[in-house]
Design a protein around this nucleic acid. Structure first.
Lengths: 225, 225
DNA sequence: TTATTTCTGTTGCTCCGGCAACAAAAAGAG
DNA sequence: CTCTTTTTGTTGCCGGAGCAACAGAAATAA
């Protein structure tokens, strides 16, 4: 079960059904269910396996040493967690909480590195995919650092909007976040974000309503840097 | 050659000499030399291999879309680069430049995932180490994001100093960076950093001279949050 | 529907920190 | 050694953005 989902998931991308089956046989996954609000992974816990979300929505949240709590990522079925963690003995800096009832597949750490004899093809692809997944998370963080280093709220917001437009392949796009969440991602004050977005709208650079954005003058936004 | 160095390097940690030899035989590394100032890796280039620095010092630099250039990491022999990159088809966001004449070992991408038959023990350990190296880079970035999200220059600096003290295991420590580089890491103005450090020194919280720091009242620094 | 809660926009006050400019100190070159 | 370059500390100015408070809009619950 869940084969169709997994074949689409980044960890198993590029596999055919037969390969996936063999691989899963070799990896011997465990399955677990979590009720709404339960923690798939608690901050401060080490992780000895990789989790793949099969059903439900989950959210990674982080509490800074200063005590502020904010959201890191949201995960839909197919999403992977614990991947960065499991290689090191680091404890998780985030708590992952089920926004709705969740089912997950856990791939135990020890089996990862002992190349299973029967499933070498899928195993190779799996490792490649794993590396790719981790890389993507790394570059996502890296892009965020770039944003945070960008001085001037105007430019920061502009860069961010342009990035999102590029990522979604359209100057009209939506984001599943509240203003407060956007602000915390951008490292600014919610009111400041609203203020600046309003200004940009007033100048005819963008249109925005809640999570919906339309970039009217992308070139002008570029210039602002 | 370089066996002693490699046995200490994070990628080959935990191996015995014999295992390392077998592994290297299987991975068929290439060796290259770079003169001072040459680029080991140009920004915008994809990477199809992992590089291990054998001799010399190198520095990773990044140019933000806004045009500002700043340092990302410095590497000593044993350091690894291209590791995050090689899994994805992403192009490098950084340029790595030889600060002095360098020699590197390049481990070609294709050989990574075809588990060599003769060297399975070392191969397993190698993959684990690779994951660990990547994880560490990820968490380093993550910690930096935390810093950048910390509002109030005072707290940001305090957190940073405490992190460094912890990392180096002493309240007296040194950093091989100029004030300008520290400032760009912290995402603030050099003058602002100097100003704040001066204040903290005046209040008896720290002593500092150039790259040397001594935290006199770590608990007070903690409180400042 | 109505009631309640969350989300969003707005605005004034205040001040932190960016910017610029300069002098002293240290490092490096010749 | 002297001369030059880089690094550092310092200080004044002022603008951007944090903070707080409130009202209207939208979503959710009952």
């Amino acid at each position: 079960m869940y084969e169709d989902l997994l074949l689409q998931a980044p960890l198993f991308a590029g596999m055919d059904r037969q390969t996936l089956r063999e691989l899963l046989l070799a990896l011997r996954p465990q399955y677990r269910a979590f009720g709404q609000g339960e923690a798939l992974l608690m901050a401060g816990t080490p992780m000895r396996e990789i989790g793949v979300l099969l059903e439900g929505l989950a959210e990674a949240r982080k509490i800074t040493p200063a005590g502020r709590e904010f959201m890191v990522t949201r995960m839909a079925p197919g999403g992977v967690y614990g991947d960065v963690l499991f290689g090191s003995d680091t404890k998780s800096p985030v708590t992952i909480q089920a926004l709705s009832a969740c089912k997950v597949m856990l791939l135990g750490y020890p089996r990862f590195f002992s190349a299973p004899v029967g499933a070498t093809g899928g195993y190779t692809l799996f490792l490649q995919n794993l590396l790719r997944v981790i890389s993507e998370k790394y570059f996502a963080l890296d892009a965020r650092v770039d944003l945070l280093l960008t001085h001037g709220l105007r430019r920061r917001i502009a860069d961010w909007l342009l990035m999102e437009a590029k990522r979604q392949g359209s100057y009209t796009f939506s984001l599943p976040f509240t203003r407060a969440e956007m602000a915390s991602y951008l490292g600014c004050e919610r009111s400041a974000l609203s203020r600046e977005l309003s200004r940009m709208a007033a100048e005819g650079l963008i249109e925005t309503k809640r999570g919906h954005f339309r970039l009217l003058a992308p070139d002008a936004l570029q210039e602002n840097r």
